[in-house]
Design a protein around this nucleic acid. Sequence first.
DNA 1: GTCCAGGGATTCA
DNA 2: TGAATCCATGGA
Length: 277
Amino acid sequence: MTSYLISSKDFNLDATLDSGQVFGFRKDSDGAYEGEVAGVWTRVHADKSGLVVEGEEGLPDREAVSRYFDLARDLSSVYAVIAEDERLRPALALKGLRLIRQDAWEALACFIISANNNVKRIRGIWKNLSDRLGEAGPAGRKRFPSPPRLASAHERLLRELGLGYRAPFLSRTALYVSKNPGCLDHIRACGYEEAKARVLAFPGIGEKVADCALLYGFQKYEAFPVDVWILRAMRKLYFRNRSVSEDRIRAYGQKKWGVQAGYVQQYVFHGARTGLL
DNA sequence: GTCCAGGGATTCA
DNA sequence: TGAATCCATGGA
C-alpha cells in the first residue's frame, strides 16, 4: 500500500463526493472513500492538511488527482457570490465543495439513469452495471462499463440490473457513442450552446440531464441543471414559492450567475438536501 | 397503500 | 407553446 498527501486547505471531500454529482464512490467505516480517481482505483480520505491518496498497486499522479477534484481552482469568487446574497449565505457551510471533472461517458450514462430516480438507487445501479458489465481493472476492481460493453448488453439485462424503463435509452445512447468514437471529444470542444444541442439529441436526455452531463462530464460551468431540489429551493428563495417553470428557473440562474452558475447550483443543491437552505 | 426520487417522451389541447 | 400522462423501482 502506497500513499501520498496533496496539500489543500480549501477542500471538502465529504461534500464533494456526497453531493450527487458522482455515483461510483463507496464510503467505508473509517470515513475513507474508494473509487476510480482519474482512471485509477484509489482510496482517498481527508486529512487536516489535505487529501490523502492511497492505492494497492499504482496511484494516479498528483496532477491527475488535483485535476480530477478541481483542486487548483480558486473558489473565492464563488464564495463571494454566495456571501453577498443573504438567501444563499448558509450554504457557505459547504466551503470546499468542488465540481469533479469526471469521465464524460460515465457522467452521460449516470445521468440518463438518474431520471426520476434517487441518489441511493443510482449508486446501486452504478454498482450493478460495473459488477456485471465492467472491465476488470488492476486489483480485480470493476470499472464503469464502456459504451461498447453497454451497447452489447441486452436490454433485458439492463432492466434486471435496475434501469427499468430507462434501459432502452441507455442502450441506444451507448450504441450511438460506440459507433461514433470521438463524438464525446467533439462535444467537449464545442461551446455550451452547441454542446448542449448535441447532448440533447441522445435518447433519454432532456434539459436537466443534458446540463448535468455538460457540467460534470464536460466542464461547461455555465450549465445550471434544474432538478426537483433546485426547483423547490429556487422557488422558495427567489420566487415566493410561486409555481415558476423549470425553463424560467434555468434561465434565471444562468443569467444571474453566468460562468459561476454550475458551481452555485451545486452549493444550492447540496445545501437544500442537507437542510441548510 | 401512497408518495417520492438530480425527468423524458409522447400525446393532446 | 404548454399541460397531462405514463414509465420501473425501491425506500420512506
